[in-house]
Design a protein around this nucleic acid. Structure first.
Lengths: 346, 346
DNA sequence: AAAAAAATTGCCACCGCTGGCAACTTTTTT
DNA sequence: AAAAAAGTTGCCAGCGGTGGCAATTTTTTT
């Protein structure tokens, strides 16, 4: 367990002051070329790495980013983390993960404490926590950089990256309509989440362009889990007049529909078209594979992180200029097809 | 954005020295009851929270734990994170995630830098990185606490939590044999991972107890991804003499087998039994649902974290006493059944 | 009641680094 | 060539806590 070398060691050996070493580390412009090389050489020899705590204490920077979320889909979270870490690692930041409870009334305090305690340089907030306006306000007031991922534009460009779920759902509607479906059902997510209502409205709007309307009894609310998907699917498929196509708010529930259809002997896509939303790993694994909407989650995370680091490093104008909107795209696979049922057929 | 209060503010207002405030914060025993109350009152009024960086700098503790891994299955990672965070949050630690490349020759340096830079109090290492003996050695030498999750006992109880994959695979073998299968295939994971060889050996050993032996051509090596699972499954199922049962090293590959079997018109479980390993979300989502081995991942993470925090807090004997071995269990679902093929049938 | 022991509390240095400003060099201007 | 400007580098004071030890107060012992 060898003693860790400090900035003093580097300074002494390189024959310069530690202030100069500090400048080299931070890429200051005002360091002579020869001095820089000399110092860098010593740094490498000693395998010196600056102490993040000391650095943070002196400069009120921690090079720590936080990720705040509430019980997201594992696959979604993983995608986000990968995206964030990709940027972090190249820019020298580390990521601290922090689950919390969206519903809790101590949410705001919890998050602020988290940020203060670890002196985070900024936080990335995932849905649905990102939809909390009180939290957003508190973050804004706290003065530390933050970026929200969301399905709806919520505040200024600087603090958000949105995916246009509404448009994507509309595209799915168009696709369904063009396949000739008219008896269409929708399994929504919790209506208290904006992403759910966005998708539902987009879908309905898209269908209405084709003169198709979803009757109220064809809209069921799940909570984005496989289990509730099963419940909803059973309700929809055991009816006398069952739909010929079902659009679910996410892949988990769409997979559940597949499962129920199978157990009822309903053939997909011949007798029933099914589509999901997310395009997570599940979509391509199930049989038949799911037609779905691909959300560029990783890319959103990437943008969000870039944006945040820019705003940490005082490039607010630049941060506001990083693209803030991404467009999910339709991915057609095996679970959807032309409507083949005649009028009277069930 | 109000100024954050410091220990000095608390000390001044409470009319004591900051050393005393520090003692109160750290729960030192030698503080008079009345003094403590007085100080705590001020702390609450000011909503004072100690600066983690300053604390760390002075005491060489950061209350930060690291999680080191290389490209794990998203579902596995999520499970681990949940387990770790559960303990962390109750004990006042935060978690920093750090992906790295197991194959890279800079692995050790990368990990050590990570630990030093953020002054982590300890790290949890996931497979396959956890199998690197050089890394383990470096960690031991570095003196900072670490715990490895693995499928094989690798070092002293204090630093590891293992799941007995070998025994679990043997149990699957027993189950297969009792169903009457004799033409059995195995899709292994990369042979360079201990977990892969453990499972394979356990499976073979288990079968041999029933006089069943897997011929070499019935063992294929995938790399634990769905895609390679597809390749292996195709090879196995397009043969004239195809197996009546396939055991895959993980659920991803087992799901791939299901997919291929479906496309070839092979009925599962009537004509082919399929089983996986992990019991992740996928297993229950696919059709037919997968018989598999449930690994108590979350529990392992929990144990590992508990163990580590104990050893951070100097309770080495206690740490060594936390259970270090968990037993995965067989979960029977729909993808397996009695062997129904006669001798000549394919 | 004085001395010894124990319990509290305070002082000061220091953890490792960066910020501000001064000092020293080198280059450019006049 | 002297003066001004620009480019480098160093010194010192913190950032907000904790550790060691001394000082003070309280309790116990004789």
């Amino acid at each position: 367990m060898q003693k860790q070398s400090t900035i003093n060691d580097v300074a002494r050996i390189a024959g310069v002051s530690k202030r100069t070493v500090s400048r080299v580390i931070n890429g200051s412009l005002s360091v002579g070329e020869s001095t820089r090389l000399k110092v860098e050489k010593v740094i490498n020899e000693l395998k010196y790495a600056p102490n993040a705590q000391a650095r943070g204490l002196a400069s009120s920077r921690s090079y720590l980013l936080g990720l705040i979320y509430d019980n997201p889909d594992a696959l979604y979270l993983d995608d986000v983390q990968r995206g964030v870490l990709e940027v972090c690692s190249t820019l020298g930041y580390e990521l601290v993960v922090h689950p919390c409870r969206y519903q809790s009334e101590s949410l705001v305090n919890d998050c602020l404490r988290f940020m203060r305690r670890s002196k985070l340089d900024g936080v990335i907030v995932l849905p649905p926590v990102s939809e909390s306006e009180t939290l957003a306000l508190a973050l804004k007031e706290s003065g530390s950089p933050y970026v929200r991922l969301s399905s709806v534009a919520l505040d200024t460009q600087e603090h958000i990256v949105v995916s246009d779920d509404r448009a994507a759902a509309a595209e799915m509607a168009r696709y369904f309509a063009q396949l000739g479906h008219e008896k269409i059902a929708f399994i929504s997510g919790p209506q208290r989440y904006k992403s759910s209502t966005e998708r539902m409205e987009g879908f309905q709007l898209g269908l209405s362009a084709y003169g198709v309307k979803i009757p109220a009894e064809m809209i069921l609310e799940g909570n984005n889990t496989f289990e509730t998907g099963i419940e909803c699917a059973k309700q929809l498929l055991q009816r006398i007049k069952r739909p010929t196509a079902i659009f679910a708010n996410n892949d988990q529930m769409a997979a559940a529909v597949l499962k129920v259809a199978y157990s009822l002997g309903i053939k997909v896509p011949e007798q029933l078209s099914v589509a999901g939303f997310d395009d997570n790993m599940l979509a391509s694994r199930v049989t038949p594979s799911l037609t779905t909407i691909r959300r560029p989650v990783r890319q959103m995370a990437l943008l969000a992180t870039t944006k945040m680091i820019m705003s940490i490093e005082q490039n607010h104008k630049a941060a506001a200029n990083v693209a803030a909107k991404v467009a999910p795209t339709l991915v057609v696979r095996e679970s959807t097809g032309r409507c083949q049922s005649s009028d009277t057929e069930n």
